[in-house]
Design a protein around this nucleic acid. Sequence first.
DNA 1: CCTCTGCTTGTAATCGATTACAGAAGTATA
DNA 2: TATACTTCTGTAATCGATTACAAGCAGAGG
Lengths: 333, 333
Amino acid sequence: MAVTVKNVALHAGVSTATVSRVLNDDPGIRPATRSRVIESIKITGYRMNKAARSLKTSRTGTVGLLVPELVNDFFMTVAEGVEDILRTEGYGVILCNANEDVRYEADRISLLIEQCVDGVIIIPTSSEGSHFSSLSDAGIPVVMVDRMVNGFKADAVLADNINGAYSAMQNLISTGCRRFGFIGGSQELSNFRERFEGFKRALSDYGIPVEKDIIKFGNVHIDSGYNLMKELMSEANPPENVFIANYFLQVGATKFLIENSSAKTASIHIAGFDDMSLSSILGFSSITVSQPMMEMGRKAAEMLLERIEEQSALASAPPPPRLVRLKTTLIKH
Amino acid sequence: MAVTVKNVALHAGVSTATVSRVLNDDPGIRPATRSRVIESIKITGYRMNKAARSLKTSRTGTVGLLVPELVNDFFMTVAEGVEDILRTEGYGVILCNANEDVRYEADRISLLIEQCVDGVIIIPTSSEGSHFSSLSDAGIPVVMVDRMVNGFKADAVLADNINGAYSAMQNLISTGCRRFGFIGGSQELSNFRERFEGFKRALSDYGIPVEKDIIKFGNVHIDSGYNLMKELMSEANPPENVFIANYFLQVGATKFLIENSSAKTASIHIAGFDDMSLSSILGFSSITVSQPMMEMGRKAAEMLLERIEEQSALASAPPPPRLVRLKTTLIKH
DNA sequence: CCTCTGCTTGTAATCGATTACAGAAGTATA
DNA sequence: TATACTTCTGTAATCGATTACAAGCAGAGG
């Protein structure tokens, strides 16, 4: 049925070894022979069976990308960055959805190991990372993006959350704001911890007190943003400026403000995180900390490729985990 | 390095054939032998090398999912539906990004064929589908979602776009609206053609004239929505009701209205397509046609699995392409 | 004319799991 | 106990590509 190297070899009047060498750009092939083989490949319509190659080389040319959810512009922009780099290297990306659930996450990792992926890029669902160790046990390199986890050491690409939040606050403070509410995601997750850290540090540096009543934590979803803004607005003395540590929380918070507009809500200003295609029309927003999402994905893919190279190069002691922080930028609306 | 069936066989004191039979749930194995093998599998920590199995069985347990772009809630919701079904059957999903470019699309198809996927689900980027035939040439089943293409026959899962658009119009007309603008995507794409068809049919059925000046076509992106709404508002006599055939166009159009608010824009009402997490806070919107996105993905996955079964069952004439239309629902804001 | 070196190419083993076929072991019956 | 069936298990070929090793071949130098 399918055309194999054998067919090509027959057609070109050479051996399968020669065909294989042409396919792998082996330099020790006479140009005349090479072009004859290439011609035969075209004519026969040969397509390599990667399963066979994988069996022999124990490299599959696929990497896994495990994200907490698919319907999420942040994760998917990272994914585009990953794909962008890996495509050019001829890798396929197996995208797995952890469904915001550590058990699903562990399950998908099993799948990826069985599929013999050459490496895995993970945006962790939770702070728990011990189930990732089966990957390193199987000798599969891992790069984490956006969040760190406990109980597992690996390369990571993170945004500079602390300074991102800090500079946004600094900017607002310089325009005269003196009282700030905060809406953030779970402090279990490293990225949200860091953003809160940047927030607090700015207040502290400018001598502004932290008011516990107007600091709210939830999860990372629209509903949570809605509810936390509602809570905030129900406080005895709600703030006029609110730092919201995540795009989806901001969407939810905005939704509440739109649905419950009043004199009190009219004067609200929001500083947010992540510049998405809809950020500019959300309203209430004065400033946004933009993470280099695509770049984070690209960088992660590059680091993973390096690791894969290292690994096949030689089996000496692997270098220690590398940590990359990418700078955020401030966007004013 | 890695544990193979050979190791397991040695450990259990049986042949590799027996181990393989246990792995594949072959019923003709004495229970005592089976449990001994299972025990050995656990003790040795055996994990199957799927590349080897694929080589022999020419089934990889992976399917390809090819979408025009990743950062798109519609496509990704479909993808979640696909993943949801395939996960439970033990399949891995190789997600490919066609980057809105037919050449990329063709390139990714090559990759998928080389990766020996068992089937492919495609949301086509354009109306051109002749490059999909290499899939059927390779004996790989294909299911298309959301859009039909020219020059290639395959199973398809589509939304009932005509009736969706029609019923939204009907609803608006019943509230007294009598003049409608239209903003839509390229009429090359079947889904947009159908939505326009539903729009026209409603006008015709209720005796409302089609006014060419207030009917605008562009691509499917935010920018396009922005520009088309701008054009519409610059017309001598702009309409108060606008049917916008796509979520992203609606976002762009809304953006224009927000940035250019005036007495004229204040009275605009928009009927849109696709109920996304942000639809409810866009403003201007009166009604939305909601496609069952997740369900479309699930259905496509189920159809693909059926085709894969059929194929391995026997090589008789394959049944003709199946077309499934899923109903839309109306959502009022 | 012969040998040696260096460049190309071919032969054949190999990766790990599956499976047709054959053979062994077990069961039932006479 | 012998015979005829089942039922279970092992042997060995196989999938398609890679690659160590060997062999062929040309030209240089003696």
